[in-house]
């Protein structure tokens, strides 16, 4: 386990790299650890450079593992996190996100009968979609509705209040 961590950090002595990789190929558990470390490292680094490699690793891992391997990964994650962070805080979320949904098909405003703190007319679309997405995971319309206009994502601009 420690060797895997060191390999990722580029600290493993050159002569030991080959044997560690061989062991990775041979042992499911170490392969799990490898993938998990990548996930954690990417999360910590906010992942710019590592993203492409991470996904390819993620993919390789999915392909190599049977579906049944999921619980093992999940069970191990807190221990790995403790090891890496020394028991420190949660994973750091990196970067701003443009909700790809934003700028698409409008939500219907709900008339606000009577008085109250609500503005008649309707909630800002991107705010509504952002929270609907967080609430309703996996449902297609909210996982990502329409294609973003102009397609290219402009993270900071798409969510009001997110540009800093």
């Amino acid at each position: 386990m420690k060797d895997v961590s060191a390999l990722m950090d580029g600290e493993l002595e050159r002569r030991r790299v080959g044997s560690t990789i061989n062991r990775l190929e041979g042992q499911d558990e170490l392969r799990d650890a490898w993938a998990t470390f990548h996930v954690i490292r990417d999360a910590l680094q906010g992942n710019a450079a590592g993203s492409a490699r991470f996904i390819e690793k993620f993919h390789e891992r999915l392909e190599q593992e049977p579906v049944a391997a999921v619980p093992r990964w999940r069970a191990r994650l807190p221990r790995l996190r403790t090891m890496l962070l020394g028991g420190a805080a949660a994973l750091v979320c990196a970067g701003l996100l443009a909700w790809l949904l934003a700028g698409g098909r409008a939500w219907a405003p709900v008339a606000a009968p009577g008085s109250g703190p609500f503005v008649d007319g309707g909630l800002n679309d991107s705010v509504a979609i952002e929270y609907a997405m967080a609430h309703r995971q996996l449902v297609p319309a909210f996982v990502a509705g329409p294609a973003p206009e102009g397609s290219a994502v402009t993270p900071a601009a798409a969510v009001p209040g997110s540009a800093r």
């Binding site: 008649d120 909630l123 705010v127």
Partner: peptide, 30 residues
């Protein structure tokens, strides 16, 4: 600040979203 200026309610099919400012926090019910 996320909801200031655009508090309100929206509905999309079965899913409703309501956002309001409560003091210095935003409350969003979905």
């Amino acid at each position: 600040a996320r909801v200031s200026g655009h508090e309100g309610a929206s509905q999309r099919g079965a899913v409703g979203v309501i956002a309001r400012a409560a003091g210095d926090r935003a409350v969003i019910a979905v």
